[in-house]
Design a protein around this nucleic acid. Structure first.
Lengths: 329, 329
DNA sequence: CTGAAAGCGCTTACAG
DNA sequence: CTGAAAGCGCTTACAG
């Protein structure tokens, strides 16, 4: 029942463990014939290398970690789930496994545990914060990592969507059909993505030669209650269009409007800087930005595994996005 | 920069590696004094054991796997995210890490990879299927695992909510305020949980001495479109209450009813066998069953880690639930 | 209570 | 092209 080892293979074939090892890994000079002999025996006798032993010999774990924020309402966002799925899929293809590591806010505690235990070869950050402690920790440890999201330090390898440009484009589009009272509701402003979306929004306003209406901009809207209050307030302030930074905010806004019998888009237009299946079946359909989140995970995994393998990787990988114009604008 | 090993500690203290190892693990006879000396040195010099080496020596990995279904609309369900979070939290407390493994439907491919690579000491199944291949595979491999969900094989260690009883209770409650035309919309019927909820529903009907209305029962409702069609059909068939098996179904039903201006609960009552934050802010509030999913993950991790440690564990752990009566019934 | 030695199953300079 | 040997950093019978 216990598994066959490299020593068993060597003995059976009358060759050394060294040779078997080389035949399997393909490293070093070795004859085609020996390789074939070894591969055949291995196949026939179902030899599987012990990854742990390999780990110890090579100081490589064949594991990466995916850092997921553990803030309370994150579990409502399909983003992390989809992204994680993309990461795991590509990692599995490359014979890597993925540890799920949750971190609370800007704490590095759980990451530290895993770094100390030496259980991973690299890390994917699924979100970046202003003044991000995880980034610092990873840099200090000198472990390969890629960030999904913008970073203050330009040296850091990133795979991301260009949120700033995407939000600028969507806002510009909205401004074509609106006089100028465009409102913005955004989430936690310590998230880099919130800042980028905000910048994209203001870029567009400036580009159109309009001026910003600070009384129409609300950030750090994190609870359903606050989003509803803000929505009411924005109607009072005669917003022509409410732009939501993500679909969680958007769905709360739409719920509130529908409950108050405010018609969309007649009385007020609505758009979202993000689109997930949360809004898929909403009627009227919401104008929004489309990102392929699973692909984001896949690409991030590719870049990280390339780094680990010692290949050169691009400093920044930006994936394409789409504006989806629908009935709410 | 490279880390200090057990040999360094032994040398510095003028004792053997054996003794250092024992002082750390607490196994075998060893003097209090030596333990203290070693612990102090370790603390002062920041020695951290190499988990990989420990793995190889003990054939233990200090990793478990969490199996997550990769069906297309699963990423909308907060269930797996919350459950995973609970698992990771408890695992981390016990110095274990969690590999995320996605499996498509009833395929065992990704699980097999990880079993072959010997990267885990145990597995948590976050969902069970009728005729579950993963269960078979795990039994064959003789690896400790716990199922979150019902299983056909009674021998399998489970941590779960008693969905059958919970659904029976909620249905009985509904039947107090309804003549007898209670409808049921359920999801994929190859999921054990769907079967359990169905049984609970019929238990209640029978207990009240009523008869089942097959024309009011729809299972395998998996797309938003089909749920909307079913909702329409149920109104036509004069359902007095629509019971939804989960909150994804429920939110689609409510969306449909609201769009068609069907008033709840006046024209038709609505209840859900599951409650997540998806429905939190819905108005009117939905009568539903409340499960603590994170706790489910925590307990599952505890049971699994106990199994791995060789402790006796209960065959079935059932967690409490609550019926939350709100405006829709 | 402590230690020398073998072992976990690989990889990899080094030598031939 | 191939092999003997040392090494990765721990644990654990065995002996004292």
């Amino acid at each position: 029942m216990s598994r066959i080892t490299i020593a068993d293979v060597a003995e059976a074939l009358g060759i050394s463990k060294t040779t078997v090892s080389r035949a399997i890994s393909g490293k070093g000079r070795i004859s085609e014939e020996t390789i074939k002999k070894v591969k055949e025996y291995i196949e026939a006798n179902n030899y599987k290398p012990n990854v742990i032993a390999k780990s110890l010999a090579q100081s490589k774990t064949y594991n990466i970690a995916m850092i997921i924020p553990a803030d309370c309402n994150v579990s409502e966002l399909p983003f992390f789930q989809s992204c994680m799925y993309g990461v795991c899929e590509r990692a599995a293809e490359r014979d890597y496994d993925v540890l799920a590591v949750y971190t609370m806010g800007n704490e590095a505690k759980n990451l530290e545990r895993i770094l100390i235990n030496n259980k991973i070869d690299g890390v994917i950050l699924s979100r970046t914060l202003v003044n991000d402690r995880l980034v610092k920790e990873l840099r200090d440890h000198n472990l390969p990592f890629v960030a999904i999201g913008s970073t203050e330090d330009e040296q850091i390898v990133r795979v991301d969507h260009d949120h700033r440009s995407a939000c600028r484009e969507l806002t510009s589009f909205i401004l074509q059909s609106v006089h100028d009272r465009v409102a913005l509701i955004g989430g936690n402003n310590t998230h880099m993505v919130t800042r980028m979306r905000y910048l994209g929004f203001t870029d567009a306003i400036k580009a159109e030669g309009l001026k910003l209406h600070p009384e129409l901009i609300f950030l750090n809207a994190e609870t359903p209650e606050s989003i509803e209050d803000i929505t009411e307030e924005l109607l009072r302030r005669n917003a022509e269009c409410i732009v939501c930074m993500d679909d969680m905010i958007c769905s709360k806004v739409l719920q509130k409007l529908s409950r108050d019998h405010v018609s969309v888009p007649e009385r007020v237009k609505v758009a979202s800087f993000y689109n997930s299946r949360l809004l898929d079946t909403h009627v009227p359909a919401v104008t929004s930005l489309d990102f392929d989140v699973q692909e984001l995970g896949t690409r991030a995994a590719d870049v990280l595994l390339d780094m680990i393998a010692g290949k050169d990787v691009p400093g920044v990988t930006l994936l394409p996005y789409r504006i989806t114009v629908r009935e709410t604008v």
